[in-house]
Design a protein around this nucleic acid. Structure first.
Length: 254
DNA sequence: ATGACTCCCAGTGGGAGA
């Protein structure tokens, strides 16, 4: 069983790459972030023809998330229960007995900005909601673009990034608090190549120089932990022409 | 170096992303 997450940075632009990727990586479920499509423009037919059920939650220009799955997702929830949000950032569903939560965490822009305040409130609400979800769903996967680099080893230049957005102590505390709910960072369950990133800036030849951040994550609940066999970042789509700035992350369970 | 690129909506420029 395989689950994956990918920030596609516009599904309108990346749909052909998504279909190619699914053909090469027939995962059981995939969550997408930054679809940037209103619901009426979602490419349901193309994704259906690829053999996937899909749930989607979009908005104009920004954000937008989707949950693709081989088997239908049930009990679908959009955004964080009880947290009023104008932005389409979360989609959850139960797939094959596993609660799958796909999330596009706020960027936060800068630690002294209003957007950072929003990010902190959002993270707090997410944690309390995931805590509740874990009570009813022992088998749970929380994955997406977290916009948090959990540790210095997740940053290509930790000195330059110290205290910057994605690397602030407050964001990292929130990441640890999610682990504190009984979740495990699947990527760090395994020995990984050093300088493993999931995002590279479009500028500065960052991908060619391998200057990036690991900000896309897959957290699994304790009940699933013994079943996790592998977790990897697939850099291949970042080599495409007109790539997303993010690479997919895949977890394999038995 | 308050940059660089890419996306979007707008509309011949600007915000946002990370």
């Amino acid at each position: 069983m395989k689950f994956a997450t990918w920030n596609v940075n516009s599904l309108a632009v990346r749909l052909p790459q998504l279909l190619d990727w699914l053909a090469a990586n027939p995962v059981d479920a995939l969550v997408l972030q930054e679809t940037k499509l209103t619901d009426d423009k979602f490419p349901t037919l193309e994704i259906g023809a690829a053999g996937y059920q899909v749930q989607w939650f979009g908005q104009k220009t920004y954000n937008g998330v989707a949950l693709l799955s081989r088997k239908p997702a049930t009990d679908v929830v959009k955004n964080i229960l009880g947290f009023a949000d104008e932005q389409a950032r979360v989609i959850a569903g139960t797939v094959d007995g596993v609660r799958v939560i796909g999330a596009y965490f706020p960027n936060g822009q800068a630690p002294d900005s209003e957007k950072f305040v929003y990010k902190m409130g959002w993270l707090e609400a997410l944690r309390e909601w995931v805590r509740a979800e874990l009570k009813t769903h022992e088998r749970l996967v929380l994955m997406g673009d977290f916009n948090i680099a959990p540790e210095d080893r997740d940053v290509y230049d930790p000195v330059a990034w110290a205290g910057q957005i994605h690397c602030t102590p407050q964001e990292r505390e929130h990441f640890q608090a999610l682990l504190g709910l009984g979740l495990v960072d699947a990527f760090r369950m395994f020995e990984q190549p050093p300088k493993s990133w999931s995002w590279w800036d479009y500028r500065n030849l960052a991908f060619r120089k391998n200057q990036g951040l690991r900000i896309d994550h897959i957290l699994v609940s304790e009940a699933l932990r013994p079943r996790v066999k592998a977790c990897e970042i697939d850099k291949q789509p970042r080599r495409n022409e007109r790539p997303s700035d993010h690479a997919p992350v895949i977890v394999t369970l038995d």
